[in-house]
Amino acid sequence: MEPLIIRGTENSPEVRLDATSNRFIITGKSRPENADKFYAPLISWIERFEPILSGRKQDSDGNPIPVFKFKLEYFNSTSAKHIAEIIIILKDFVEKGYKVKIEWHSAKFDDDMLDTGKEFSNMVDLKFDFIEY
């Protein structure tokens, strides 16, 4: 599966979704001019990742668990809706029995970002690993 790599800008996050190297990260600032357009390929990629996960599920262990890292400095409310959409898909994967983890990173002193992560985690009833940087 082709990785999805998007360079970060002043307004939009850096994205790396790579099944081969098992790296899944969204990092930076998210205030894209058109959030729907920006997040559509990410959501589509994650949806297409499901068959790979399902294949891995039948494997005996040995495959590293995919860890989706959200390391966002800031995101606007329009982006929040799409981030929630991604998290819902990941929760759906977990419900189907696939092994997936979510790491929510927040900067030291940034209680709002930490709280947002906790809110997302409660909202979908899925445990996140919270990491301070």
Binding site: Y74, N76, A107, F109, D112
Partner: peptide, 17 residues
């Protein structure tokens, strides 16, 4: 060291949007 900067910035962006 207060984290206030991020909160103000975040509200500011929503106001502008």
């Amino acid at each position: 060291t207060t984290g206030m900067d991020k909160r103000v910035y975040s509200v500011l962006v929503e106001c502008i949007e």
